[in-house]
C-alpha cells in the first residue's frame, strides 16, 4: 500500500533534507522524522522521511542471511 525507499541524507536545511537514492537526489521533508541526521539512511515515502533506518539491524539481517547460507553449505 505504500512505496518507500531507502536513501542517505546528504544535506539538511531547516526541516528539508536532500536525500541521495543511488545517485538520485530528492528533496524530502523531515517534518515526520526531525531526529534524522546528516549521513543517516531514511525511508522516503511520498516526499517525506518516515523513519530512520537502523543500520545495525540492517547488517544484522544480512549477517543472519550469510550465516544461513554458510550453514546450508556446510
Amino acid at each position: 500500500m505504500c512505496l518507500a525507499i531507502p536513501g542517505k541524507i546528504v544535506s539538511i536545511e531547516d526541516n528539508l533534507a536532500e536525500v541521495e537514492i543511488a545517485g538520485v537526489i530528492r528533496r524530502v521533508s523531515l517534518d515526520l522524522a526531525p531526529e534524522a541526521k546528516l549521513n543517516d539512511y531514511v525511508l522516503v515515502h511520498a516526499g517525506f522521511a518516515i523513519q530512520v533506518i537502523d543500520e545495525k539491524e540492517a547488517l544484522k539481517t544480512l549477517e543472519l542471511f550469510k550465516e544461513l547460507m554458510e550453514h546450508e553449505v556446510s
Binding site: 518507500a4 531507502p6 517534518d31 515526520l32 522524522a33 526531525p34 531526529e35 525511508l43 518516515i50 523513519q51 533506518i53 537502523d54 543500520e55 539491524e57 540492517a58 544484522k60 539481517t61
Partner: peptide, 18 residues
C-alpha cells in the same frame, strides 16, 4: 518483525503525534 531495519518496535511516535 522481519523488517527490523525500517521498523523499530515503537514505530515513529512523532509522526503519529503529527
Amino acid at each position: 518483525i522481519q523488517y527490523s531495519r525500517g521498523v523499530p518496535p515503537e514505530g515513529n511516535p512523532h509522526a503519529m503525534k503529527v
